[in-house]
Amino acid sequence: MNVTVKFFASVREQLGTAEERLSLPEGISTVGELRDLLVRRGGAWEEALGGNRALRMACNQAMCNETAPLESGAEIAFFPPVTGG
């Protein structure tokens, strides 16, 4: 399954990339499993996307949670929560 992963704001800055196209291995079928796969890269990936970091996620431009299913061609986005004042 091929997907496009986009990173925004501080996540993009930590990773040094705004977008990556991935061919996912068997067994990766949810947004949460994709996040875990990226975290396992270690280093900046673990810091930017690790489970202790509050992140918002979207799949095909719709907000989602970690249980959202993936499909081939999906666009997944990771970004920090937005605050305002």
Rank of each mutant, 00 (worst) to 15 (best):
residue 80 P to E: 03
residue 70 L to K: 03
residue 72 S to Y: 02
residue 40 R to T: 11
residue 10 S to N: 07
residue 69 P to K: 13
residue 83 T to Q: 01
residue 57 M to C: 07
residue 4 T to G: 01
residue 21 R to G: 09
residue 53 R to I: 13
residue 42 G to F: 14
residue 60 N to E: 12
residue 55 L to T: 06
residue 59 C to A: 15
residue 4 T to V: 00
residue 43 G to L: 13
residue 69 P to C: 07
residue 19 E to R: 15
residue 70 L to P: 03
residue 48 A to D: 13
residue 46 E to F: 04
residue 66 E to A: 06
residue 25 P to E: 09
residue 53 R to M: 11
residue 66 E to K: 06
residue 57 M to Q: 04
residue 22 L to C: 04
residue 55 L to F: 09
residue 2 N to P: 03
residue 18 A to W: 03
residue 76 I to M: 02
residue 74 A to L: 02
residue 50 G to R: 14
residue 51 G to Q: 14
residue 69 P to E: 11
residue 44 A to V: 15
residue 36 D to H: 10
residue 78 F to G: 07
residue 58 A to I: 13
residue 49 L to S: 09
residue 18 A to L: 05
residue 61 Q to W: 09
residue 11 V to N: 07
residue 37 L to G: 11
residue 57 M to V: 04
residue 39 V to Q: 12
residue 68 A to N: 06
residue 72 S to P: 14
residue 31 V to Q: 10
residue 2 N to H: 05
residue 28 I to E: 08
residue 73 G to C: 03
residue 33 E to I: 13
residue 78 F to Q: 08
residue 39 V to W: 12
residue 84 G to K: 01
residue 8 F to I: 04
residue 18 A to Q: 13
residue 21 R to S: 06
residue 42 G to V: 15
residue 38 L to S: 07
residue 48 A to H: 09
residue 30 T to W: 01
residue 65 N to G: 11
residue 70 L to W: 08
residue 77 A to V: 10
residue 34 L to A: 11
residue 80 P to V: 04
residue 2 N to K: 14
residue 8 F to H: 14
residue 82 V to G: 01
residue 26 E to I: 02
residue 1 M to V: 05
residue 2 N to T: 04
residue 41 R to T: 14
residue 31 V to I: 13
residue 80 P to H: 07
residue 73 G to T: 02
residue 7 F to W: 03
residue 66 E to R: 11
residue 63 M to C: 02
residue 76 I to V: 15
residue 58 A to F: 10
residue 49 L to D: 09
residue 76 I to H: 01
residue 4 T to H: 04
residue 9 A to W: 01
residue 66 E to N: 09
residue 3 V to S: 02
residue 32 G to M: 10
residue 23 S to W: 00
residue 6 K to P: 02
residue 47 E to T: 15
residue 36 D to V: 11
residue 28 I to C: 11
residue 19 E to Q: 15
residue 25 P to C: 11
residue 66 E to V: 03
residue 50 G to P: 14
residue 34 L to E: 06
residue 36 D to W: 00
residue 73 G to P: 05
residue 16 G to R: 07
residue 32 G to H: 13
residue 66 E to Q: 14
residue 35 R to G: 08
residue 77 A to I: 02
residue 8 F to W: 14
residue 18 A to R: 06
residue 83 T to W: 00
residue 38 L to G: 10
